[in-house]
Structure formats: C-alpha cells, structure tokens
C-alpha cells in the first residue's frame, strides 16, 4: 500500500524535522485532532485579548485609570500566555504520539479555570460597585 494515487509535492519541511526529530507519524486523524484542539485554545486566547481591549475601551471613568489599565494588561497577558502554552502543548502532544508515550497532562486547564473564575469575581465586584 505504498503507492501514491494523488501526486504529493512533498516540500522540504525543515521546521517539522527540527521539532519532531524522531518517532513515526501517528494516524493522520490524531494529528488533525491535535491541531483542532490547538486552534480551539487559540480562539480562547483571542477571546481573552479581545476582552482585555474591551476592558480598556469600555470602562472609562468607572475605575481609577491605573487599576483599569493594569487589569486590561493582565487579561491580555493571560491571552498571550494561553496562545504560547497552546503552541507548546501542540508540540508536546504530537511528540508523545510519535513516540507512543502517554499524552502530557494539560497544564493550561487548571490555570484557565482559576483565571476565568477570578475574572468573573472581579466583573461582579465592578458591576456591584459601579
């Protein structure tokens, strides 16, 4: 079963070889599922970035400017952290699948839970005190 029916122009994937030097490629469906998970995390990260921008843009006057800016920057920073963490996790999961090792424990999940809960508390405090 090693014939190609559709022509496959295989480009030189130098970055791929550097990131995944060993192991054998897993079933394509697992690679794709890993990608979809990564993309879902990215969309979450983008939501955080947009929320940080919205905090700065839409809560003018109800907070001292230092607190507001600090909060907005913190939320944006969480978004960036999620994005970077998601890319790192994508790499770790793909590597684990290639070496047929167990998948790594997701570290972003508890962090995200804590941050989202804290954000909700702060938002409630803002609503009540405005």
């Amino acid at each position: 079963m090693s014939r190609d029916s559709a022509p496959e122009p295989v480009r030189d994937d130098a970055l791929g070889r550097r990131l995944f030097p060993d192991g054998e490629e897993p079933d394509a469906r697992f690679t794709l599922a890993n990608e979809r998970t990564f993309l879902a995390w990215i969309r979450t990260a983008l939501a955080f970035v947009a929320a940080g921008v919205a905090i700065e843009a839409f809560t003018l006057g109800s907070l001292p400017p230092g607190v507001r800016k600090g909060f907005a920057v913190a939320v944006i920073a969480v978004g960036v952290l999620i994005a970077v963490g998601a890319g790192f996790r994508w790499w770790r999961v793909e590597t684990a699948m290639r070496r047929k090792r167990p998948l790594p424990v997701p570290g972003i999940v508890p962090l995200l839970g804590v941050v989202a809960a804290a954000g909700a508390v702060v938002a409630a405090v803002l609503v009540v005190s405005a």
Binding site: D13, L15, G16, L19, F20, E25, T31, N34, E35, F38, L39, I42, A83, V84, A86, G87, W90, W91, E94
Partner: peptide, 11 residues
Amino acid sequence: RPASRSVLAMV
C-alpha cells in the same frame, strides 16, 4: 505531516 509552520504563524 504536522503543520508546524502554520502553528508557529498562528502563535
């Protein structure tokens, strides 16, 4: 093949 360049671009 994992889409390394696209993932990097997105991050």
